[in-house]
């Protein structure tokens, strides 16, 4: 048993926990392009000070949170009815319906985002369709805007929203709904007062599973967004790969981590609780 605990503990300690300590240490250092790697160790908070005083970084933080939050909301509005419909479908059909939700997740993330590039480009499929139907003569390009980024996030993370929602909705005791309707509740009243509150754990889990990765997203804003789409994952990437400013990129990583600590903790707590309940 000692090895069973020790091996994963040691592995994750060395390759997951220790690197974070390094990120903190490097974030306190200074960028020095003459060195290889370009870092001068030290103890200064000026990287963090820069992140909180420069308008560009502040704007990137705010727009990351805003884009992630609105995308999460859209995914919830789309995912909840889907999860509900699957949970109420005939039991022998549910596995297939669920598998169809999960399948895109098993294909390449990069390729799913790429799929939207061809659809959204000017003169792309959607553009042509709008022209052909006469809905819009000269639709503006969607590719390269925040709209496209929202669409990409909802598309990529929808399965993460549907699965936990389905898990809670499927377990829901339908007897409670019958009781509500026997007592005179209309269907929508029963939904608002019984189904919705009881599916709350699923809503929280689904929203966190979409929100957390979206905040630090890089591929989606890079491929679907424009040059004016600011997201913090992209800032980190550019600081690191384009500007080779490792300390500043590390400081961005530290801030991103601090920002996400609360949602991650809520998520882990809820996971632990739902496992105990089983």
């Amino acid at each position: 048993m000692r090895a069973v605990i020790g091996v994963p503990f040691l592995w994750l300690g060395v390759f997951f926990a220790l690197p974070f300590a390094l990120v903190f240490a490097i974030a306190l250092g200074t960028n020095n392009p003459d060195l290889v790697p370009p870092v001068e160790l030290g103890f200064s908070f000026k990287n963090f000070a820069l992140l909180f005083s420069d308008d560009l970084y502040l704007a990137a933080w705010l727009s990351s949170i805003r884009i992630a939050a609105t995308s999460t909301l859209i995914a919830l509005l789309l995912g909840y009815p889907m999860a509900y419909a699957i949970a109420r479908a005939a039991p022998n059909r549910r596995p297939l319906l669920l598998m169809l939700v999960v399948l895109p997740f098993w294909t390449s993330f990069l390729i799913r985002i790429y799929a939207w590039m061809g659809l959204l480009a000017s003169n792309g499929t959607i553009d042509q369709f709008l022209r052909w139907t006469g809905i819009a003569d000269n639709p503006g390009t969607i590719l390269g805007t925040e709209w496209a980024v929202h669409l990409g996030i909802v598309y990529a993370y929808l399965p993460f929203m549907v699965l936990p929602l389905y898990a809670t909705l499927e377990k829901l005791d339908t007897g409670l709904l019958e009781a509500a309707s026997d007592l005179g509740a209309r269907p929508w009243q029963a939904f608002l007062t019984v189904t919705l509150p009881l599916s709350f754990p699923g809503i929280v889990a689904g929203c966190l599973l979409v929100f957390i990765p979206s905040v630090g997203e890089f591929v989606i804003p890079d491929l679907l967004g424009g040059t004016d789409t600011l997201m913090i994952g992209k800032v980190l990437w550019d600081e690191f790969f384009t500007n080779a400013d490792w300390p500043l990129a590390s400081a961005v990583a530290v801030c991103l981590l601090v920002l996400l600590v609360v949602p991650i903790a809520i998520f882990q707590r809820q996971q632990a609780r739902s496992l105990e309940r089983q």
Partner: peptide, 11 residues
């Protein structure tokens, strides 16, 4: 649940 950019830079 760790953002991949954070894990990437740390590793």
């Amino acid at each position: 649940v760790m953002p991949e950019v954070v894990m990437g830079i740390s590793m």
